[in-house]
Design a protein around this nucleic acid. Structure first.
Length: 381
RNA sequence: GUGCCCAUGGUGUAGUGGUAACACUAGAGUUUGUGGAGCUCUCGUCACCGGUUCGAAUCCGGUUGGGCACC
């Protein structure tokens, strides 16, 4: 189980400092949670992920179920031993894959739409079905992204898989909606997510913590209904998930609508959010932890985040640049390597480039949140 | 020297009379709980000169540059 203590509540916003105790150590919140989908921060060892300042990681139920399979992880002694990460861990439930492998793939879209459904000419309405998976009241029939075989994951299956994986914190199985979904679809989906929330709680047999997920897209009354319902159940914390329609402002609005309706004693995790510029707003909105693929994913695309903005290592100009990625950064990459070398490695598709940039980005993101914690401590936000 | 063959974007190829295609690379975007992926865009006076034709990368002649064979 987990224990969450708020050690300082800001008077200027909903930001707060906390300590999240888990069987594998404590997390100082607010905290960034790097994404370790298949039980690894891609390109880094677990020791390196920790050296980059990571306190807690999030792995993925759907992906570990496919490969290598939860039974293998269980036999290995659980995910902590399996990946040699003796620190706190979460597992996402697979609910996001209901969207990303469903309407997300069909429409080539993520959690943010670039326009209204009518403008884009694509929409998700009641009765619409995604092409590659089937959603039923009991769960979702997926296809494996590895070999195409069919598999079924519902709340019961998700919790059983997550129990075998053995992270400290699990998430309830939910449906993450599309930003192109209309009110009626989201309303129906919310009922499904709530049904699955209860089933997830009933399925749990272990002592692992379980977070319920608040959905409702960009519709205020549905978000409020989602928050009230999720808060009424015996979850150990909350995930706030879903899409934000076509307006990025909804990212903070969703927190404004939901956080006041959630128990202040329980931790709140904002799912899948975390550009640097998003961090302070969502922390002010009341997020205690949040995960995002950005620092690791972008590193593999050659993007380094620095105090002077994003660097694109594709750019030839860096081949003649002897500065570190960020002269103000205290990470090992910046202490020992320069842009010219990293640029060369990246352009030559050398694996070491991914590692150096990933380490830097992770360190930078973690340090960025640490500074926000300091601001809260000093009463500045 | 003679004969034959070849000459299309950065690279490799397609296209044998009717608005130059494909792959990779490169450059510009996009990327928020999967993806070293994907998607969008950009990069060619078809070696040069002339001719035939309503119209030529495509046919003809020449030039230049390659390759092969023979003396």
């Amino acid at each position: 189980m987990i224990d969450f203590k708020v050690i300082k509540q800001s008077k200027k916003s909903r930001a707060r400092l906390g300590i999240l105790k888990t069987p594998h150590g404590e997390v100082e919140t607010p905290a960034f949670v790097p994404v370790a989908t298949r039980a690894t921060i891609k390109t880094l060892t677990s020791e390196e992920a920790a050296a980059a300042g990571s306190q807690m990681l999030i792995a993925n139920t759907y992906h570990l179920h496919l490969w290598p399979g939860e039974k293998l992880v269980k036999k290995a002694g659980g995910i902590h031993k399996f990946m040699n990460w003796p620190h706190p861990l979460m597992t996402d439930s697979g609910g996001f894959q209901v969207f990303s492998l469903g309407f997300g793939t069909d429409h080539g879209i993520g959690k943010f739409a670039k326009g209204r459904a009518e403008e884009i000419g694509k929409s998700v309405r009641t009765g619409d079905k995604p092409q590659k998976l089937k959603i039923t009241p009991h769960g979702v029939h997926f296809r494996s992204i590895i070999d195409g075989r069919e598999l079924f994951i519902g709340p019961y299956e998700s919790i059983k898989i997550q129990e075998d994986i053995g992270a400290d914190i699990m998430f309830a199985f939910d449906e993450c909606t599309s930003p192109l979904a209309d009110y009626e679809y989201v309303k129906d989906s919310l009922e499904l997510t709530h049904r699955w929330a209860k089933m997830s709680l009933n399925a749990r047999r272990s002592k692992q913590a379980l977070y319920g997920i608040v959905q409702g897209s960009h519709f205020k009354d549905l978000r409020e209904a989602g928050a009230r319902f999720t808060n009424s159940l015996d979850f150990d914390g909350f995930g706030i998930g879903g899409d934000f329609g076509d307006d990025k402002k909804n990212m903070t609005k969703v927190l404004d609508w939901t956080v006041p309706l959630l128990s202040p004693r329980k931790p709140r995790h904002y799912l899948g959010i975390g550009y640097l510029e998003d961090m302070e707003p969502i922390i002010k909105g009341g997020a205690d932890t949040f995960d995002c693929i950005v620092p690791t994913h972008y590193a593999r695309r050659g993007i380094a985040f620095t105090s002077s903005g994003r660097l694109d290592l594709h750019d030839k100009k860096f081949l003649a640049d002897k500065k570190p990625l960020d002269p103000k950064c205290a990470c090992l990459t910046c202490a020992h390597y320069r842009r010219n070398y990293i640029g060369h490695l990246f352009r030559a598709h050398e694996l070491t480039a991914f590692k150096l940039i990933t380490f830097h980005n992770l360190f930078y993101f973690n340090a960025y949140v640490a500074r926000i914690r300091q601001k809260i401590k000093e009463g500045r936000i």
